[in-house]
């Protein structure tokens, strides 16, 4: 498991300036899992309520069910209304072992959001990615530094 911020920043707690537009790029290496709640397939809380996938494709809604799995993780900041479902790498093309490098297959996800008022905002993933835990919700989903973190807006 890797955090959606990839391996180049080994922290899930970031400090951001208040009232600022932040441009974010996420490299996604992981395969898809069905969403527990498909409502998290909708992009929201970011500029244009959409993101750019691999520099070209505009994405607003991703589907992730047992038949169609497109989402690997989400980057969700509930207090800011931000929800960004991350497009998954097809399971046949996953890089063999973490940490993966930029040479290996990945998806590049670009979007920007507005930080607003100062405060500590939690972010988390809404995909049950804790494999072999009940509901997929233990382990990394329940541990700061994996699928959870803070945005410290100052």
């Amino acid at each position: 498991m890797k955090a959606p911020d990839g391996h180049w920043v080994h922290s899930t707690q970031w400090v951001l300036p208040a009232h600022t537009r932040v441009n974010m790029t996420i490299y996604e290496y992981d395969g898809g899992t069905p969403l527990r709640n498909p409502v998290w397939g909708r992009v929201s809380g970011v500029y244009g309520n959409s993101y750019t996938l691999n520099g070209t494709k505009k994405v607003q809604l991703l589907e992730s069910t047992s038949t169609k799995t497109q989402v690997a993780h989400t980057f969700t900041v509930p207090a800011m209304g931000i929800n960004v479902p991350l497009y998954a790498v097809p399971s046949s093309k996953l890089c063999p072992a973490a940490p993966c490098t930029l040479k290996e297959p990945h998806e590049t996800i670009q979007f920007s959001f507005y930080t607003g008022h100062p405060g500590q905002y939690r972010w988390q993933c809404f995909i049950p990615c804790g494999l072999s835990y009940l509901d997929g919700n233990g382990g990394p989903m329940d541990t700061l530094g994996y699928m959870d973190g803070f945005l410290k807006v100052i």
């Binding site: 899992t33 069905p34 527990r36 069910t65 047992s66 049950p128 509901d135 997929g136 233990g138």
Partner: peptide, 9 residues
């Protein structure tokens, strides 16, 4: 949701 496969295995 387990029925759609999202049960964490």
């Amino acid at each position: 949701p387990s029925a759609n496969g999202a049960g964490g295995g």
